[in-house]
């Protein structure tokens, strides 16, 4: 079913190319596995994008590790990269990225890396470091809230900040926020991820 739907929308030429490259990669295997291959190729094509925070990049081993999924389902995947990989600088430890990859033989290679930008909820605006510094310097009335886990807050937080980790706000709601709903409320955490 899935194969049919996809085939309808992909131009025949591309489809042929996919099947052919799939065959070329597996030229050593027996012909008994030939039949389900086109479907497998189509599925792989769908899954070839990874999104999540970068765990690390090794320039010596030429690999990138990225965490995908959330909570208990989160897992780390390792990809290789080479001189043709685009946007390598976006694979920066601790920052979220979107990686397109392809299978080459036994290895997964990153082809294009883009930064994954945080989506702002409607009606919320971003504040940059200089503006925030100025507001604090001018002692503009505001509530500055650290959204990271309490331990991180304890280690080091911005001046005047209070600790409101995400689970706490979810549980206590407005109880942990200022009474005045029109007062400036700024949230920060450990970076873009």
């Amino acid at each position: 079913m899935k194969f049919k739907t996809i085939a309808k929308f992909i131009p025949m030429v591309l489809m042929l190319a996919l099947i052919m490259s799939g065959c070329a990669q597996q030229s050593g295997t027996t012909s008994a596995t030939q039949e389900p291959k086109p479907a497998a190729v189509a599925e792989k094509k769908d899954a070839n994008v990874l999104k999540g925070p970068i765990v690390g990049r090794s320039n010596k081993a030429k690999t990138i590790s990225i965490t995908v999924g959330a909570g208990d389902a989160a897992k780390t995947m390792m990809l290789r990269f080479d001189d043709n990989t685009e946007g390598l600088d976006f694979a920066k430890k601790g920052e979220a990225a979107i990686i397109n990859w392809e299978q080459r033989g036994d290895d997964k290679f990153a082809t294009v890396i883009k930064p994954k930008l945080a989506k702002l909820p409607e009606g919320v605006t971003e504040i940059k470091v200089d503006e925030l510094y100025q507001l604090l310097e001018d002692q503009v009335p505001m509530t500055l809230a650290d959204a990271r886990p309490g331990m991180r807050y304890n280690q080091g937080h911005l001046p005047t900040a209070v600790s409101i980790p995400v689970p706490l706000l979810k549980e206590k709601k407005a109880e942990v926020l200022p009474e005045d709903k029109d007062k400036l409320l700024v949230f920060y955490c450990g970076g873009y991820t």
Binding site: K128, V129, L132, G156, K181, D182, K183, L185, Y188, Y192
Partner: peptide, 11 residues
């Protein structure tokens, strides 16, 4: 809350 901002670059 009417005046909410996010310091995305963070700590």
């Amino acid at each position: 809350y009417t005046n909410v901002r996010a310091f995305l670059a963070g700590e």
